[in-house]
């Protein structure tokens, strides 16, 4: 309402809305960080001028069409062309140890955790050997889960150094935790018995 009286308020509102705008396939030249090739044929000033006068601030133009919130988790980078524009996506070489065997191993670990999780509830606690097996299975299951998270959210193509850091950092962490659990299993009462005692404390 106040924007009738004070045009500056309207302009600020439009700018704020524009900075929050989420995805656009049009009018991309006004957001060079997201869509860098401003020299693109399609976004030439001459073509854009035909649609909208440049006298309007670009943010206002965008605000007229986009009013949804911005989600800045891994926003898309400017698109690039690898090779020529008509190359198909590369098919990785088939490798069962990175594919079906790995997948089956993950499922066997997960399925094996079912009896190992029910056992302490049924028996009240676990003997040291079974407790160690449960800990090892949880450790492998966790490691595989964290690996998937690193693969999904730290893509090599986008963050190659961070990916290597996290990949080896995860392996180091798993070894450290494995040694720590070995110490706990050998020096203390075992994980299931410890959880039971804390839970009933």
């Amino acid at each position: 309402m106040a924007s009738i009286v004070r045009p500056a308020v309207l302009r600020q509102t439009c700018l704020a809305t524009a900075s929050k705008r989420t995805f656009s396939t049009k009018l991309s030249a006004s957001f060079p960080a997201i869509n860098k090739p401003a020299t693109s044929v399609l976004s030439r000033p001459a073509v854009r001028n035909a649609f909208v006068k440049d006298a309007l601030p670009s943010a206002v133009r965008v605000a007229a069409f986009h009013a949804s919130g911005r989600q800045a988790i891994l926003p898309p980078l400017p698109q690039v062309i690898d090779g020529t524009a008509n190359d198909a996506a590369p098919v990785p070489p088939p490798s069962p140890s990175h594919g079906s065997y790995h997948w089956t191993f993950e499922r066997l670990i997960s399925a094996g955790l079912i009896p190992l999780t029910i056992a302490p509830f049924a028996a009240g606690s676990l003997n040291p050997t079974t407790d160690a097996i449960l800990c090892a299975a949880i450790l492998i299951h966790s490691h595989i889960g964290f690996e998937s998270i690193v693969i999904d959210y730290i893509p090599t193509k986008r963050l190659p150094k961070t990916r290597v850091l996290f990949w080896w950092g995860l392996r180091l962490a798993t070894v450290v935790v494995g040694v720590g659990l070995y110490e706990f299993e050998t020096n203390d009462v075992g994980v299931t018995e410890a959880i039971k005692r804390i839970w009933h404390a």
Partner: peptide, 19 residues
């Protein structure tokens, strides 16, 4: 023409976010 094609490919829409 090839440059126009490359420019078009670079302007393809990206996946929308979860929301």
């Amino acid at each position: 023409r090839y440059e126009i094609l490359v420019a078009q490919r670079k302007n393809r829409p990206t996946s929308p976010h979860l929301t």
